[in-house]
Each structure stands twice: as C-alpha cells, then as structure tokens.
Design a protein around this nucleic acid. Structure first.
Lengths: 213, 213
DNA sequence: GTTTTCATAGTACCGTTGTACGATAAAACG
DNA sequence: CGTTTTATCGTACAACGGTACTATGAAAAC
C-alpha cells in the first residue's frame, strides 16, 4: 500500500460511511465497529483518522453540512437567470426539505444530530449544528428584496417572515420524515404559505378581499 | 412496607423520573440505573414495574403524552366562555410549544422520542409517537368553524391551514429548544402567522390592500 | 540497501448496560 | 401463629462500547 494517503479524502469516505449507518440504525447506535464494517476497513483505521468518538461525530456533521450546502448551491445555480427573490427563497426551502431519497437521508441524519445536540454540550457548541444560523440572514435578505419589488405587505418584518418560512420548512420536514405525510404534501404546504406571503400578481380575484366589504 | 401498592401510581412515579433524567442527559443515555437513582429506589425495582427497557421507554412516552394532554385540556378550559375558534387554535398551539420551564422539559423529551422513533421501529409502531395524528383533526375542525364565521379566506383548505399551523409550531419549538431564539419570539412568530391567516376584524387599514391598486 | 515512516490490521482491556438470580422484611390470609 | 404473597434490595453475568497496545508490510529517505 502506498505510503502517502490524502487524509481529508479518507475522512470524507469514513464520514460518508458514518452517515450511511446513522441513516438506518440511528446516530447513537452507530459506533466505530459499524462505520468500519460499512467502509470495509478495520476498526482501528477509523480511529486512525478520527481518534475519538467525538471527533468522529464531528466529522460526520461536517460531511453532512457540506453535502447539504452543495445541494443548495446547485439548486440555486439551476434557477433561471433573472433571479427572482421569491423563487430563490422557494428553491432554498424546497431543497432543505426531504424531497427525494438523498435529501431524505440527509435530513434524517441531520435531525439525529439536532436531537443529540440537545443533550450533548460538545455537539451543541459546534456552530450550525441544527439551527438556521447562516440561512436566516440569506432568507431575510431575499425577503427584503421581494418586499422592495412590492411582492409582499411592506408592514411585515422580513426577519419574521424568514423565521416563519424556516420554521415551517423544518416542521413540514419533520412530519415528512416521520411518515405523517408525503414529501409532495410538504412542498404543497410550503407553496401555499409562499402564496400567502407573496401573493402572485394575478388577474384572478384578490385572495383576501373576498371576505371583506 | 405495605403489601399492596398501586402499580399504576408507581409506574407514573418512575416514568416521571425517567423524563427528568432524559431532559438532562438525553433519552439514549438514560438507563435503569439513572432512573432508579433519580427515583431514589433500587435498580431492580424499576425492572419490577418495567421488566424490559422497551417497556420503560414506552411507559415514559405514555407519561409524557398524558402530561402534555393534561396541560392542553387546562389551557382550553381556561379560555373565556364564548369559545372563539381562533383563540382555541392559538391556545392549543401555544401550549404545544415550550413557553415555560415545564413545557420546555416536556418538549425536549418529546423531541428525543421523536428522534428515537425515526430509527427504532418498536417506538415508531406506537401510535402518536411524534406526529400530529390526533391534533390535526381538532385543528381542522376549529379552522373550519373559523371559516364559517368568515374569519379566513374561504378558498383555503382548512386541512392545509391546520397542517401549516402545526408544522410552524413544531419548527418554532425546535428553534426555541435549540436556543436559536426565545420562547417569546416563537409565540410572536405564531401570532404573526395567525394574524396572516385570520386577519383581525380591524378598523385599521386592511393588511394586504396597501400594496395593490 | 538499510532505516525510518506511515497506513493498515488484530487483539486486548476496562467501563457500562440490560438483564437475571437469589434474599428479605412485611403484610395478608388461613 | 404459620404460611404465602409481594414489594423491595444487592449482587452477578454476559455483551457491547470506546479506547489502547502491538504488529506488519510497503513506500520513502538517505
């Protein structure tokens, strides 16, 4: 075997194996032995790259976040060019939710990390474990831009709208993952909310005025 | 010690101890020994009432659900008499969210159960583990009643509205529990959404018309 | 060509966990 | 009063977890 190995690459492989295990048996039940078996290497090799379990878990979290972030970038890049802020908001939220097999797996494990962080201070100390820390400003900015284009009620606080949308996506994702409804239902719920917040410039009767006057 | 003991009572006590432990160290890290120590009894006594760990976990879940349900009933009973459906919806959702120490603990452990159910088929098989199974019809009914009173857009599907509200409450609760924002912020977000869905019969300028025509 | 370094493997150790077994005091029952 | 039941306890056992120690073949360095 060669002497020099790309440690980062190897860590990525092992972190991928960790996520693959956690997706099935859960994060708490995934240890060195399972990861090693999944990756097809010895137990000690896992320890060679992740000396302690905390580092292993941390590596898995980094891997997870990188994959989610990559998916999000692709989704945004695939949007048609005249960047519509509402469409961007929708793209971000939809691709945050478990809408296909891959994203369902990612969300599942991410939820497991979030649950673990509730009681594990070492994980909670890691930035971006579960919260919308870095996404919230982005959404706030997009919502603000949409407001400047007159797409929403100017009296609404964009930060509140961003929080609401993120929380809704989170809740809908949780229900999808629990099997309470389908991914399509979740997307429908999200679109419904987007229509409510950013009413389409429609020739149809105005949504709300029907029940006034 | 007396010969006859109310087993159900004892089980409640032990389940309470389980929840108290899980609140701090997490559900997966809570075993017979911690529960026994928390309850001030021997390890074997816990096993006497919950022979296996699955039964112990199941007992804790039942205890949890009973307490949440009791809190909800009290919240609904405390409402002023001419039952306003929107106020009832709000009461249900607010008291589902972690808005004080007790409900924060309950939500925390409930979230741990939900996370565990994602990978533990035995828990997932238990009804009402995490989903809004029994609350959704209630909310749908209340939203329908609100619609009959002309409080909301008649074109909206009450079931969709109920799902949205539940998912929003879930997401806001998750962020509160993760420490991303305060419980008051979460309630504000919920109230904002309720105002959006059920605009107050206001003398003030109509919310949405400001940006049309 | 020898020596050092490095990636990998096997195995062993110790703590913890769920679970089982046996013991005991007290109450109930005859 | 004796016996049986019952709530409780202490201890033990087998398995599994993370972690540490040692070995080994191969590449690199000199």
């Amino acid at each position: 075997m060669p002497k020099r190995v790309d440690h980062d690459r190897r860590r990525e492989e092992l972190a991928g194996a960790l996520v693959r295990c956690a997706r099935v048996h859960g994060l708490h039940a995934t240890g060195f032995r399972e990861v090693a078996a999944e990756a097809g290497v010895s137990v000690n090799l896992v320890q060679y790259y992740f000396p302690t379990k905390q580092q292993l878990l941390h590596g898995g979290l980094l891997h997870l976040r990188a994959r989610i972030s990559r998916r999000l970038s692709h989704a945004l890049a695939a949007l048609p060019e005249p960047a519509d802020p509402v469409a961007q908001v929708r793209a971000i939220l939809v691709h945050l939710m478990p809408h296909d097999q891959d994203s369902a797996d990612l969300y599942r494990v991410h939820a497991a990390y979030a649950a673990l962080a509730l009681t594990d201070p070492a994980l909670a100390a890691q930035p971006h474990t579960a919260g919308p820390d870095e996404l919230h400003p982005v959404l706030t900015d997009l919502v603000t831009r949409a407001g400047q284009q007159g797409r929403t009620d100017p009296r609404r606080d964009p930060r509140t709208t961003a929080t609401t949308l993120l929380a809704l996506a989170t809740g809908l994702s949780a229900y999808t993952t629990s099997g309470y409804h389908t991914a399509a239902d979740a997307v429908r719920g999200l679109d419904d909310q987007l229509d409510l917040l950013f009413p389409p410039a429609d020739p149809s009767p105005v949504r709300r005025s029907a029940l006034r006057g």
